[in-house]
Amino acid sequence: MRDKVSSPVFTEEERVGLRRGVQRLREVWILLSIQFAEVREEWHWIVLMASLFPFTTLLFFRFFVPDPSAEMIQRMVTGNMVFALTIMGVNTMAQEIARQREKGHFTFYASLPISRLSFVLAIFARGFLTCLPSVLILGVLGQLVFGLAFTLNPGIVPVVLLSLLACTALGSIIGFVSPSPATASLMGQLLMMFISFLTPVMVTPEMLPAVLRWIGSIFPTTYIAEALRIVLFQGWTPQVTQNALLLTVYVAIGFYVVARRVDWRVEA
């Protein structure tokens, strides 16, 4: 008769690791569900608010800029997508984080046996969900208003993903470093206007004074605008790779800063 007791497939250590991995996945899923419920509650306002401003700007250019060049149109469309991103990813996210922080919401999560990493992932996922609709809407409306045709490149997916996460990271950092929700709101709005109109988002860098070009290079939105424009109208190029790498660095820095700043329990 065959011996039924065979050596285990996994060692005890591996089994513990697996269990922990499954547990992490489960908690990320539950936290995501909670964050999704928060977004779901007000998604129509999110879409309306995030689309209205950039769409108005888009129409303004359509009506008042006579005979724009193809490149200008491309910049207007992608620039307004970035405008939508700064509204939702930076401004709204900063306000929301500051509000939750003031109300002590993070203390509740820190008191649960969940990891800080899972929680920060959920915060970023919330930002992603908040930004996505307006970016998509602006893309579609931009095509309709200016009769553009985007190249359907699979590279669009990682660029959009990184763009959304980089803006979320910036918004989250503002939310965590602001002493109050009012300050976060003020900082978010200032940045939103500055980034959209005084950095190379809707215009070429050459059109701006050197100091604004230099300041613009600090913000991820400069690289987002360029990466989106190229990938949507030309496909994946080395410049997109460069921008994507820079955005990855922004996301990583943002993730690190948020993880450090979130009100969490002590760690061994």
């Binding site: 928060e38 779901r40 939750q100 109300k103 002590g104 919401h105 203390t107 008191s111």
Partner: peptide
């Protein structure tokens, strides 16, 4: 289990 003085955090559910 710790119940802080702050209001309960999950408000959308």
């Amino acid at each position: 289990s710790y119940c802080a003085q702050d209001p309960y955090a999950i408000t959308s559910l």
